[in-house]
């Protein structure tokens, strides 16, 4: 005998069970969103250990506040937002503010666009992870999450101009790193 429940019903039951702190529901939710959210947190950290820390901290927040989740909205987006906020908190707690001289960045040749196009997800992710925390966070928030510089400034406690500057530097470094992987005639 198979029991089939509508997806919405299933999700709402899962959320309700999580709100009741039922361990099996927490596990199911964790398993369901692990992959996507780990993909998010990996972008904000430079290693998998930190990413896992952010992920677990984020899930703790999810389980604590799941009663506030609005049933008719996207659970994925809600959890993702919590993960991003957790990553921002992580950045604010751990980052050491420092400036990097753009003159040390790579000089990009015109062929680098090809290199970027050919890069896989994993290669781009690794290149992003190699960025400094300040550059990486701004790049993620602006390019992936679609934050404005004003929002980034407020979230990270930096000025808009710093956000703009960090984004330019992040792009430059990222292109350099990706190009270096493909050995497309980098000139320093």
């Amino acid at each position: 005998m198979d029991i089939v429940l509508p997806i919405e019903n299933e999700e709402s039951k899962l959320v309700q069970a999580c709100a009741n702190k039922e361990r099996w529901a927490q596990k199911v939710l964790y398993e369901t969103y692990y992959g996507k959210m780990m993909g998010v947190t990996l972008r904000y950290s430079n290693n998998s250990e930190d990413a896992l820390d952010i992920l677990h901290e984020g899930f703790i927040k999810v389980f604590k506040h799941i009663g506030r989740y609005q049933p008719n909205t996207s659970l994925n987006a809600w959890i993702r937002r919590i993960m991003v906020n957790t990553a921002i908190d992580y950045y604010r707690k751990n980052v050491r503010r420092r400036t990097e001289d753009i003159d040390t960045a790579f000089d990009i040749s015109s062929k680098d666009a090809d290199a970027i196009s050919q890069a896989t997800e994993q290669e781009i992710l690794e290149a992003v992870q190699e960025l400094s925390p300040a550059y990486r966070t701004v790049f993620n928030l602006y390019v992936i999450e679609g934050f404005s510089h004003k929002e980034i400034g407020q979230a990270l406690g930096i000025t808009e101009s710093t956000s703009r500057s960090n984004l330019v530097k992040a792009r430059t470094k990222l292109k350099g790193k990706l190009s270096a992987r493909f050995d497309y005639g980098i000139r320093k």
Partner: peptide, 26 residues
């Protein structure tokens, strides 16, 4: 052009990037 491509590629490839589930992390 490089910047545009970079942004688009990064967004496309990383936005929905998923990691395989690792049961030991539970």
């Amino acid at each position: 052009t490089d910047d545009n491509i970079l942004d688009q590629k990064a967004q496309q490839k990383l936005e929905d990037y998923e990691v395989p589930y690792a049961p030991e992390n539970w």
